[in-house]
Amino acid sequence: MQQKVLTFLGRRRNWTIPYVLFLAFFVLVPMVLIVFYAFTNAEGAFTFANIQKFWIHPEAMNTFLYSVVVALITTFLCILIGYPAAYILSKMEARKAKLLVILFILPMWINFLIRTLATVALFDFFKIPLGKGALIFGMVYNFLPFMIYPIYNILQKTDQNLIEAAQDLGANPRQVFLKTVFPLSIPGITSGVIMVFMPVISTFAIAELLTINNIKLFGTTLQENIYNGTWNYGAALSLVMLLLIGITALLNGEGSSRAAEEGNLI
């Protein structure tokens, strides 16, 4: 008996089993529960009412669409601001660049609620009104490092021979960038988009703080429903989010797992 247990443990592939069980119980079952709650009413009977409510109820739908727009703008600005930064960093001497990358990531270590409250204080100090502009600024501020890091990572790994080849073949610096460097860095941008877009839609608390409770994003709607005990409707809204994640993950294919690996930055 003991011998059997030992041989079983000796096969190292069996060491995956505890984690598989753990994932099944704490990741898979909970996600199935979201689907279950989304399609049942408070008594546990099957219903489409929760999903219908999302389509009919303009408030949740509007918040959702608004959040998608905010997330799109934030993602776009992060690329616009982050790409040049990542490019400059990738051109620097490795040691110096590494130090600067750390400096870009470091603010993440301060609790984001405190950072957001400090941003509010900063706006107050410069007499900048809180509202939509402040919201976008706060979002870009919070998520910019998540864009810079993956782009920097991929630019830094770009094969220098390809760039030299382009130069040898007579491309001017602009062409080298547009035809060689930029296309090669697109996977980095994809990773960045995954790490910025979805989290922005689902943040809550940041929007309220930066707009004095005037604007709320989808994350807040989810949280309110769970807090007010309307779990089934909350689950239906979560399902909408889950589908959106599924679609982005599918669209990005390989990019998603790369993004996950680069989540290592924090």
């Binding site: 989290p199 839609i201 989810l222 689950a235 979560s238």
Partner: peptide
């Protein structure tokens, strides 16, 4: 990849 609110609710 799951946003934290989905992990939280699930």
């Amino acid at each position: 990849l799951n946003p934290d609110i989905i992990t939280a609710i699930s």
